[in-house]
Design a protein around this nucleic acid. Structure first.
Lengths: 145, 145
DNA sequence: CTCGGAATGGACAATCTAGACCGCGGCATT
DNA sequence: AATGCCGCGGTCTAGATTGTCCATTCCGAG
């Protein structure tokens, strides 16, 4: 696992169908060397699989928001975790630096689903207020679902 | 977009490197018919891209940030997409409501990797400034991002 | 300096892709 | 009913890519 492997992983992340020759041209290896490394990365389970990113609109969960969470006083991460794990629409969440205490990524079927999920988050004790940024158009979605 | 397309998407989700012939054998089409449909799905942006799933532990991509992007004037989503797709550390991004133009979710190996990725985003024309919230502790992680 | 192991690059056959071409069936027009 | 058009699938072929071989190079140990 060296910088060559990391370069290969970066390229494959961008386009998992790039040819070995093309990858080699960028990282400075021959096609066969790249193939050997990719095979090894797969065998070592560093690469878990090759997959596609599908338009989220297809599976109907196309309304998203990033929500900043502001709490009263100090709130332990465990407390936040307890609150958020009860809301299935929460895709992603973490405590963060800055004025907000946490950022929560919510994905729902539509705006009313989003509102309902937000309501559940807000109902939690210690949550002072939230600030939402609703996603207008999704640009990148590298998550493999 | 019919059941054949859905079958193809399912197979590609499981293994994006499957050959057209193999896919066709499962869904009941010839290789070229499958290729035509896949090409169309890509052209229609139903398939957003081909990527790999990397073991987060081995890869050590554990430093994350949510970055608000503020642009000068109006920026077309396509322009933002062009900029951001060149930065592999960008996991997730979308234009949003609110004062920021877009929110970008970045995952890097460490703080310096984060800084480098941020630098790449900032270098883009029209990007006025950014505001980052670095993730301190990850609470929820439902998507295999 | 020499040895041994690991990794590389080149060569080649097998395989797969990309695109052209043709045929079939549905549909609107005449 | 006949005609022409259009979408979709199958077959075929040239070209690119993959998978695998082996000789060579590189690097650290002794």
């Amino acid at each position: 696992m060296d910088n060559l492997d990391r370069g290969i992983l970066d390229l494959l992340r961008q386009n998992a169908r790039a040819g070995y020759g093309d990858i080699g041209g960028v990282v400075g290896l021959s096609a066969s060397a790249v193939k050997r490394r990719v095979d090894k990365l797969v065998a070592d389970r560093v690469i878990r699989g090759f997959t596609i990113q599908v338009d989220p609109a297809i599976d109907g969960m196309s309304t998203e928001a990033y929500v900043e969470l502001f709490c009263r006083g100090t709130v332990a991460p465990e407390e936040l975790l307890r609150i958020l794990s009860g809301v299935p629409e929460v895709v992603d969440a973490g405590t963060v630096t800055g004025s907000a205490d946490a950022i929560v990524h919510i994905r729902a079927r539509d705006i009313s689903g989003l509102e309902a999920a937000l309501e559940k988050v807000r109902l939690a004790p210690n949550v002072d207020h939230t600030r939402s940024a609703i996603v207008l158009s999704r640009l990148i979605h590298r998550a493999a679902e």
